[in-house]
Design a protein around this nucleic acid. Sequence first.
DNA 1: CTTACTTTGTTGAACCAGTAAACGAAGTGG
DNA 2: CCACTTCGTTTACTGGTTCAACAAAGTAAG
Lengths: 401, 401
Amino acid sequence: MEPRDQTDLRRANLALVLTALRTRGPHSRAGLARLTGLNKATTSSLVTELGHRGLVRLGDPAPGQFGRPGALVELDPGRVCAIGLEANVDYAAVAVLDLAGDLLRHHRVACDLVALGPTGALDVLAKLAAREIAEAEARGRWVAGVGVAVPGLIDVADGVVKLAPNLGWRDVPVAAELTERIGVTPGVDNDANFSAVAEHAVSGTSELLYLTGEIGVGGGVISGGSLLRGATGFTGEVGHMPLDPAGQRCGCGRVGCWETSVGLGALLRAVGDADDPVRDAALDLESRLEVIRERAASGDERTLAALRGIGTALGVGASILINVLNPAAVVLGGYFAVLGQWLLDPARDEISARVLAPDSGGCELVLSDLGFTAAVRGGAHAALAEVFADPTVVPENRNTS
Amino acid sequence: MEPRDQTDLRRANLALVLTALRTRGPHSRAGLARLTGLNKATTSSLVTELGHRGLVRLGDPAPGQFGRPGALVELDPGRVCAIGLEANVDYAAVAVLDLAGDLLRHHRVACDLVALGPTGALDVLAKLAAREIAEAEARGRWVAGVGVAVPGLIDVADGVVKLAPNLGWRDVPVAAELTERIGVTPGVDNDANFSAVAEHAVSGTSELLYLTGEIGVGGGVISGGSLLRGATGFTGEVGHMPLDPAGQRCGCGRVGCWETSVGLGALLRAVGDADDPVRDAALDLESRLEVIRERAASGDERTLAALRGIGTALGVGASILINVLNPAAVVLGGYFAVLGQWLLDPARDEISARVLAPDSGGCELVLSDLGFTAAVRGGAHAALAEVFADPTVVPENRNTS
DNA sequence: CTTACTTTGTTGAACCAGTAAACGAAGTGG
DNA sequence: CCACTTCGTTTACTGGTTCAACAAAGTAAG
C-alpha cells in the first residue's frame, strides 16, 4: 500500500501499533509510543480505534517501578480469526487461528482427493471451511480470510492451480470455485510457501527457507518478512535440482534430481528392502516413519547409515540454496522434522563445508515444531497478515468495550 | 521508511511522483495526478517542490487533443548525479550517472589492484572518485552518493569486504576507509548485485536474475524491484553449485562446481589447446574473447562445439535458479554477453526442458547491453535509488526556477 | 470573429492526522 | 503528608491532502 492521504497514514500507523503488539508483546500505551516513535496522544487514539475494531484489549496494570502504572494493551484473540485449508493426496485439513496465531481448531479428514477429482475435492474443502466459518460467526467472531494450501504450481494472482502432479490437477480455478461455494475468495498458494509463512509467524525470522520432505521436496522462501513470490508465483521449486548426472531417474523423467536422494522414496529404499513393512504403501505413512524412528533410536546400523546419507544429501542441496538466498534459518518440515534428530549433524557438516559466506552466513538449520499442521496454519496466517497490514479491514464494533 | 507523520507522507508522495516520471516518462501535472491517483492540487504542489530541489523541470506544452495543453514535467538531469566505483583484479573504474540514469562519464584505468593491496587499491578508487566529485560540484551538481562494486563477499550493512578471493582481500573496511578519503560514505556491494541493479534500472523488470561470466560465475537477484539481500548480505553465490560429483576440481577445493563447467577457465580449455594464444593469460582478456568470437563467426567447429557445451551447462544451472526464484528475466553479463549469440539457444533448450513452471514461468533469457560498465553503473544507480525513495535528501535551491 | 466546449493548473476553505505542552491521575519513597 | 515519577487525556496547533470553484488556454463550429 502506497500511502497517499491521511487515511492511508492512519492505516499505516494502526498497522504499526498492532504489529508492535504482536512482535514485542503487551505494552502500555506510553510504552507503545516509545516503541513506535509515535506521540503518546496518537498512540492512545490508535489503541482506542484498534479496541473498537476488536483487535486489542486492555489488560491489568503493569508493575512499573515508579510513577503511575500503565494499563497493558494486548492483542485481543476473541474477535478475529482466520481459516487455513489444505488439500493433499490422502487427506484434507482445516485449521482456525485466532489473531495471536493460536490454534483454535484443527481437523484432518483422511480421504482420497485424487480419486475424488478436483470438483469433489473442492466440495470437501468447502464443507470443512463452511462449517468452521459458521461456527466462528456463531460465536461472534469475524473471519479475516481463508488460505488454501495445495501441493503444486500455483498461479497466486488468479488463485489457479496450474499443475499439481500428485493430485492429478491441471488448471483448476480453486479460488473461483471456492468463492462460489463459501462466499469468500480464498488465497491459494503452494503448501511449502504457506508452511514457510507459518514458520515465519512463530519464529519471527524475516529471512528463512522452509524445506519439507514428502514424496518430493518442497521449498518456501521468506525474504524481508514476506513470501518470495517471483514474477508469476512459481518460486521454491527446489526438488528437481540436478545434482548428479550419474544418479537415479526421477519421476519428472530426468536423472539425478535432488529429491531422488532426499525424497521419501530415497529414505524408504535406503532403510529397508522391498519386503520391509516400512515400504508397504498400504500402511499409514506416519506409523511407518515411527517405525524408522524407533529403529534409529535403538541403534539399528542400517537405519542410521541411511539417515546419515539422507542428511548429507540434504546438506548438499541446502547449501546451494543458502549460497543463493542467505537465509537466517533453514527450517526442516515434513518427514525431515520427524527424523531430524539423525539428519541434522550430517547436514550441518555439509553446510558449513559448502557455504561460502563466513560462518555459513549466520544460517541455522533447525527442525519445525509445527508437524503436519504447518501448511494449514500458514494459510490462516496469510489471511491474518492482511489484518496486520491494514487493521481497517476489520469492521468497527462500538459495542465491544 | 514507515510513514508516521505528515512529513513522511509528503516524502512518500514526492517519491511517488518522481518515480512515476522515471518509469512512465514526461507527463503534464494533470496527467501525473491521474497516474498516481493523487489530487491535481497536491500534484502541482509536489511538482513545484521537486522543481525547487532540482529534480524535475518544466518542458514544452504537450500537444493535447482538446482543451488547454498541459506543460510537460520531466526529470531534470542537470543537477543531481551519482558515482559508481568498481575494484577488479586488473582495473579500477568510475562512472557518473545523471538522474535519468544516463552515463555522463566513464573512466577505466588498468592497474594491478592485487599487487597494490587493499590500501593502495582504495587510494586509486578514492582518487578516481574525488576527481569526479570535484568536477561535478564545480558544475553545480549535487552528488547523491557513491556505490562501490567489489567482486567478493560483502557485509553490506557495515560496508566491509569480508572475502574477495580474486583480489586477495579479507575483512577490508571499504566504506570506512573511503569515507576518510573522500568525505562521503559509499555503499559497498558485490559486483554482480550492483550489475543486477543496473539491469533493473534499464529494463524496468522488477524480478530478474543477473548472471555474469568471469573467472567464476556471479549472480545478483532483483525481487520486488530491489536487491535480494538475505540475512547478512551474502546472496547470489551461484558459482559453486555442485552439479556433477564426477566433474572437475574447482578452485574452492571441491568437485563439480557449476563454474568449473561455465567459468572462463572452462571456456578457454574447451576452445583451445594449452598452447593456443587465447589461453595466454598475459594477453588482454577482451581481445582473446574477440578472437573466440571471430572463430565462432567464421564457423570453426571446435569453437562452436565448445560454446554449445557451455550454453548447455549454463542452461542447467540457470534452470535451478529459475525454479527457485521465478524471475521474469535472466540477464547474462560478462563474457556470457560477449559470446551470448552462440550460448542462448542451447541454454534456452535446457531451461525450457528443466523449468517446471508452465512456459518456463514466463522467464526470458537475454543478453546484457551494458558490457563491462554494468557494475559501476549499478553502484551509481543504487545511490540514485535513495533519491527516488526520498527526494527530500536533495537540498532545496530556490534560485533554480 | 465569436461562442460553446474541453482540459489545465491555481486558489482558498475544509478536513483530518499527528504533535506539543499542560494537566489531572495514580502510583512510590521519604 | 509531600515530593517525585510516570501514565494517559485534553486542547490548541501545524502540516498535508482534498474539494470545489475559477481563471487560463487551447479546439471546433457557426
